[in-house]
Design a protein around this nucleic acid. Sequence first.
DNA 1: AGGTACTGTGGGAGCGCTCCCACAGGTGAT
DNA 2: ATCACCTGTGGGAGCGCTCCCACAGTACCT
Lengths: 352, 352
Amino acid sequence: MATGHGARGRSGGRPTLEEVAARAGVGRGTVSRVINGSPRVSEATRAAVEAAVAELGYVPNTAARALAANRTDAIALVVPEPETRFFAEPYFSDMLKGVGAEISDTEMQLLLIFAGSDRERRRLAQYLAAHRVDGVLLVSVHADDPLPDLLSQLEIPAVISGPRSAAETLTSVDSDNYGGGRSAAEHLLSRGRRKIAHITGRLDVYGAQRRVDGYRDALRDAGHEVDESLIEPGDFTEEGGRRAMTRLLSRCPDLDAVFAGSDVMAAGARQVLREEGRRIPDDVALVGYDDSAIARHMEPPLTSVRQPIEEMGRRMIDLLLEEIADRRPAASRGLERRQVVLATELEARASS
Amino acid sequence: MATGHGARGRSGGRPTLEEVAARAGVGRGTVSRVINGSPRVSEATRAAVEAAVAELGYVPNTAARALAANRTDAIALVVPEPETRFFAEPYFSDMLKGVGAEISDTEMQLLLIFAGSDRERRRLAQYLAAHRVDGVLLVSVHADDPLPDLLSQLEIPAVISGPRSAAETLTSVDSDNYGGGRSAAEHLLSRGRRKIAHITGRLDVYGAQRRVDGYRDALRDAGHEVDESLIEPGDFTEEGGRRAMTRLLSRCPDLDAVFAGSDVMAAGARQVLREEGRRIPDDVALVGYDDSAIARHMEPPLTSVRQPIEEMGRRMIDLLLEEIADRRPAASRGLERRQVVLATELEARASS
DNA sequence: AGGTACTGTGGGAGCGCTCCCACAGGTGAT
DNA sequence: ATCACCTGTGGGAGCGCTCCCACAGTACCT
């Protein structure tokens, strides 16, 4: 019978558990135990099985395992953005680096899924409904995104980077956006600047709001009034940075500093400042956010708030793996809402 | 028994084929036929099954399907490079865009796998041995890479972008690197340049060699001798472009044009030219390759050879899906070696 | 009337695992 | 000697599909 199976195999006769068992002279269960690293196997048996595995070049069939054990050993990194943004923003590549590094210590497989268009989102919903992954990492989620709710409804473990609001129910990892915004403003104040403008990120991103909060509180705590006309919403893009800067200059020609909610927006702002003949930092000091490659290569080099993005990626994986392992009758889960917040650091350069 | 199964389900009772069948009052096989779009089902039955599927919110279990049908409905895009390069070079993002667009018309799932380090490569080998994908897309492969051989040994359908050599056995899609190199050189000649240097890509990449061949032949055919000291190997990176340009200038201070094997290298070359006080294009004309965003944003805008990279991605998927569908006793395969070559186009800008 | 050839359908027999129960054999307390 | 309780092991019973054989029903030829 064992030979029957082997001969019938459709794909060039890959060895099965059963064949390994026969070869090692043990039962199927024992081989399974060895493969899965169970401690309940004697040393001698383990060695025999391992020899058989090596001789036959046995590799477990993932589909069979997934079916029997009801798990996939895969997790998805879901990016609810079009590919374009993913490649344009260093945020994602750093995140992916951290995630990749951490997950490579495990047997888990990482899938990268873009869900920018409506069509892609529908596919993603199908995909999740089919339980094709054990867990989901969600990055860059907007306030009104239904994805997190779908996830908890399907009872799929998930970790979000950048909570949607202060009341986020999902486990989350974030950097200290409030502190980052605050340190940017404090830095500019300490350099003697007084008319400090702020180009915000998309305000439906919670982190962008928090940066504004930090900026506001820093000014206020230093005894300044917050001039709302110095706050201009942006959208994280270079073009958005240009537009915001243009508006700010026409509204408040005497500003002496700009805190941009991202390096990319700072790059856009810089172009406009140049075109208008403002010198950086002499006339206008400029501070960005992310401390990406752009910041280091800008002329002059851009002061920027660094988020430990790789570290965030690593923490997200850790938390997600815990959630997956913890999976138990829903009742005992979710008691402690888990939120990790990592510190940011301001990197001072010539632009301020 | 049917209820027994359902009640025992571990994951919140997702409906099974069997349950859908019961609901629709048909047999298991019939539901399977409907799900898989077989034409051998009557209209009435099909409608009944579809209703049952909708009512129960049935989603097929991929693991069970994979096990029974011995396919995974997934293909991998394997990048034998560290993540860093993947994000640094627009080549990959364009490719991914084409691939993503084309595959989104299908039920196939795309996995992105990096295999830069030795460790990652070992994992990849395991992964492929486990037959976790139906096919593989291979981009940016070096001449001595063992991956393609592993793939054919495992009989996994694969398409390579950029053949490893003229004798590539795998199905391949490529742009006309020879023609591209040729057109760059011809363009510079037509602009009256005579001392045309070439910074090559990594010469273990076949396409980079072909560009050199095209460059050489263009000069020769125009009646010029090829001055080998004007050819300097690069490595596709900005830093490599800088280094190569520095060497070229010290060796041949009177060169009047540079053809760089990639836009990124052209950017590096441009920096050096600037530092040395050479004006572009007045003193030295510069031509890049890839026609990426860098080229358009450079100052002055960079003349560059455009490869239809998205199109290449699309063709790769088409070919791969054919190979997967064609899968039959190895004998009848591989008779016709399939190689698609797409035309390039020179985009002339102010740098030349 | 019998034969042949369809179309549409039901359901058995797997696919290669994991889970878990059963059980042998050892060890130590009673 | 009896019982309890370990450790290590074998193998049955699934997991939810697909594949394919069998067969009912209809249609159209001889």
